[in-house]
């Protein structure tokens, strides 16, 4: 790949190009919104917009940590399975102790520990991330099935439920969490040395190592963060649906990856952003929301989503080329 190995050059150079890309993507979101407003009279209402944002928040939280992993040219296929185990453990802790705080600590801690284990597999054991996290996915799923034994844990205290279904000043709580982590993510990736080092690892790991980046430690960090975000997402899900079941994380991984990729982060690493992922998550959520509002049968959903992913990335490629 012809990416720039020089960290200094990247930090000056990349954001402006990424900003242009983000602008194109915002334009696509705006066009989609205009189309939906024309097609459905309930789309452009406060309620529905808040509804879309709340659903986006969940997808974004899963995808934001994953963005960092993909920025290093890695992948985390264990996100969904991580969410399932973290949610089930957190649910048990809340049920047993009645303390939402302990539950939150359990969820995030479990997620981070799983992410840390992924990081160790990828760095110390040198297993390609795709396979390491795929193996991890199976192991976590097995543990979750064993732990839950086909049962459901439900009914959490109202304080905890606020995290998922509560409102503050008329805006759903998950939206605040989303904005908070968008800012943290943006600051971390764009404005800290560690963030820049993550971009450098993705762009060219050899050059990054030569210029003194502690590649292994940063990679472990990145996987741990991705895991912790999965843990956080699991808490939002718990708080929203008020129950945990072994299959809670099923079918969440691929949409999260899709959100990152539609958001313009490259699988080859080194280019993309957490803000882009938000746009990707928003875009995919809008598509599903639109299909529900227009009463399009859900059998169409995989087909439409597939076409949209391809279109988005293809347009992205074209605009990227015309920039260069």
């Amino acid at each position: 790949m012809s990416s720039t190995p020089n960290i200094a050059a990247r930090s000056r150079f990349a954001p402006s190009r990424d900003a242009m890309q983000a602008l194109y993507r915002l334009l696509a979101v705006a066009l989609l919104c205009i189309a939906l407003t024309a097609l459905s009279d309930v789309f452009f209402t406060t309620n529905n917009i808040l509804n879309v944002l709340r659903q986006t928040a969940l997808l974004f939280l899963m995808a934001s940590g994953l963005t960092l992993v993909i920025l290093t040219a890695g992948l985390d296929l264990s996100v969904g399975a991580n969410i399932a185990l973290s949610a089930c453990l957190a649910a048990s802790v809340i049920k047993a102790t009645g303390s939402p705080l302990l539950g939150i600590a359990t969820g995030i801690g479990c997620g981070a520990a799983i992410g840390f284990a992924n990081g160790i597999l990828v760095t110390a054991l040198r297993i390609p991330s795709f396979i390491a996290t795929y193996g991890m996915m199976w192991m976590l799923t097995g543990i979750t099935y064993y732990y839950m034994a086909g049962d459901t844990i439900h009914g959490f205290p109202p304080e905890f439920r606020q995290l998922g279904s509560g409102y503050l000043l008329g805006v759903p709580m998950p939206v605040y969490v989303m904005v908070l982590f968008l800012l943290i993510g943006w600051f971390f990736a764009q404005r800290t040395i560690w963030g820049q080092q993550i971009y450098a690892i993705g762009a060219n790991p050899v050059a990054a190592r030569l210029s003194g980046v502690p590649v292994e430690r940063r990679l472990v960090l990145v996987y741990a963060v991705s895991g912790a975000m999965a843990g956080l997402a699991s808490l939002i899900i718990l708080a929203r649906i008020n129950s945990a079941q072994g299959d809670i994380g099923e079918e969440l991984t691929l949409p999260a990856i899709a959100a990152v990729l539609v958001g313009g982060t490259s699988l080859f690493g080194g280019s993309g952003s957490v803000a882009g992922t938000l746009i990707g998550a928003l875009f995919l959520t809008l598509v599903l929301n639109g299909m529900n509002l227009l009463q399009i049968h859900s059998s169409w959903q995989p087909l439409v989503t597939g076409v949209i992913i391809l279109l988005a990335v293809w347009i992205d490629n074209r605009t990227r080329r015309s920039d260069a």
Partner: peptide
């Protein structure tokens, strides 16, 4: 048959 999917489907239907 999934609760999260049902949650989101009902949220969206309530808009219409």
């Amino acid at each position: 048959y999934q609760r999260l999917q049902a949650l989101q489907v009902v949220e969206n239907l309530m808009q219409s």
